[in-house]
Design a protein around this nucleic acid. Structure first.
Lengths: 327, 327
DNA sequence: CTGAAAGCGCTTACAG
DNA sequence: CTGAAAGCGCTTACAG
């Protein structure tokens, strides 16, 4: 049987109350008693039960993180950063890979509630899951609009879209296509598109945007990429809204023997550490992942400790350009 | 205030005992009562408190996962797979990124204990942390020897090392170098090296192995790679013990204008989904990540449910060869 | 400075 | 088929 406070108390010859007090450094306890208790704790190898503690305190110091999947480098990195920040602040993290499955996600929300998490950080698309009006749980969304009263954190998507487009224009492109990832309608990522279109219009160029609707659908993605090449054989620039997509575009270009960057320039989005080490040749817009993570955790913690009601807010962190050899 | 069982009981006009019983589907309850209770639960929006439940049951259905960092594609993918398997079996997962920091790792172990996790899956190098003799907690290690009584799951490293070496030999290499990642001494990954050396010896070739000791030390890694090229300008094959390393080798080869695969063939190890999509040209040995994850979870669950004492075992899953253009 | 008692939200013998 | 009581391992007023 695992030792409990009572056992420590017996071993130290004091009451459970006293043990609890030294454990929590609360109230006045004589040095002597303190030492006896510490001694007893190590003697019997006592480890406090946080379940009991949390039950009483109504605070678990656990937060939930819901992402599509940590297989994706962007979410793998953001998850790692968020967990680090949590750990530094004394929070633990329950992780949920929703696989963009609405039913799974609904279950995760319930699970997190049952486990009394102090808050949740969400990076998935799930309109309709939350009961907007009476959502109480402290929550922060990463690049997703979940509800009118949930703060959103992300990169400055408009700046990113503009930057990508400008870089292409600067390096001489005139016939630039934009390819969008799936489900970006409900996310601030649609500002990437908006910025692209605005920037093109301002220069008097006609914007052309393709959308990939299927989530995790490699086949559709490949089909659309081929379609772009078929329908726009004279395009000289492609702005893809994520790096994996950009790499696929690059691959198709190679297949068609289109010299990069001479005939076609390509720029991606995300700039994860993984991509920058495995494919440093890809020019891309880098999201400040650790800053995003940090600020999401900070905002969440503020909600938790101040017990503030949820309030809409949008935090955008500046992006940067990584120059590879595709632009 | 969150509604509790008592509130449901009141709303349904029954006792808390009865509510608990319908909640757990235990004992006989009349259909009528059941319905009243269900009705009451939805009426007042009741969500059970798993903390209280777990406290009583001495079972949390939570497991801990300790990895160096999910930023690394291998661990990001294994974490996602493990979490999926857990979720399917009704377990939740607390994730810990130890960053290969022994102090952090020690704290994570204590945290997991305090939170009464049912078991732990570890993918980090941490000899000396566990109290071998009296380690009670169900535990499974991924490709690491933690203690004489903790089961290990991984890819068949010996087969992998042999396969890599044979592929190089088959394609004509004779002067093959092996570069090892850090910290592989205490892990089954050292069988990759052993297999390489055995295979080379059997063919009458002299094995040459370099080791990179610094964990996460990009600078040292680059230095060693340059050293390999400097000291063995006539090498015609390199077997790198992970893909990120292999890609760095490839990059250095490009810098030196060494044509790949004509003058030099390169083969990596891991074959994550991420690498296979971002760098499909890299030939590599693929670990069956989802199989490894699945079997780790299965073994852990068996320990948990059968309450077996920990027992040494080693499970090796076969690897496969991914042919890119570097071999 | 220290302890006995009540309570956090559940569950399960035990009794009816 | 249903309920009152005790207990899971803690913590914190309250009293001394």
């Amino acid at each position: 049987m695992k030792p409990k406070i009572e056992d420590v108390a017996k071993a130290a010859g004091v009451s459970p109350t006293t043990v609890s007090r030294v454990l929590n450094n609360r109230g006045y306890i004589s040095e002597n008693t303190k030492n006896k208790v510490y001694q007893a704790m190590t003697d019997i190898n006592y480890i406090p039960n946080d379940l009991a503690r949390s039950l009483y305190n109504k605070k678990t110091n656990i937060i939930g993180l819901i992402v599509p999947t940590t297989k994706n480098p962007f979410f793998g990195e953001i998850a790692a950063e968020i967990e680090n920040d949590c750990s530094n602040r004394g929070y633990k993290m329950l992780i949920c890979n929703s696989l963009n499955n609405i039913e799974k996600e609904r279950k995760y929300w319930e699970m997190l509630r049952r486990n009394q998490v102090d808050g949740v950080i969400v990076g998935t698309y799930n309109r309709g899951i939350l009961d907007y009006d009476q959502h109480q749980l402290p929550t922060v969304a990463i690049d997703h609009y979940l509800s009118k009263n949930i703060p959103v954190v992300g990169s400055d998507n408009y700046q990113g879209g503009r930057l990508a487009t400008e870089k292409l224009l600067e390096s001489g492109c005139r016939y630039i296509i934009h390819i969008n990832g799936p489900g970006e309608l409900e996310t601030p990522a649609n500002y990437r598109r908006k910025a692209y279109e605005d920037t093109m219009n301002k220069r008097g160029q006609e914007p052309v945007t393709y959308e990939i609707s299927g989530v995790f659908d490699q086949v559709e993605q490949d089909r659309i990429i081929r379609q772009v090449f078929d329908e726009h054989p004279h395009a000289d620039g492609i702005f893809a809204s994520d790096d994996l997509l950009a790499l696929n575009v690059l691959r198709e270009a190679h297949k068609r023997n289109i010299p990069i960057p001479e005939k076609l320039k390509i720029i991606g989005y995300d700039g994860t550490e993984t991509i920058r080490t495995t494919a440093p040749h890809l020019s891309t817009i880098c999201q400040p992942i650790s800053t995003i993570a940090e600020s999401a955790v900070a905002i969440l913690q503020k909600q938790i400790t101040d017990m503030l009601p949820l309030e809409k807010s949008e935090t955008r962190h500046p992006v940067s350009f990584h120059k590879g050899s595709t632009v």
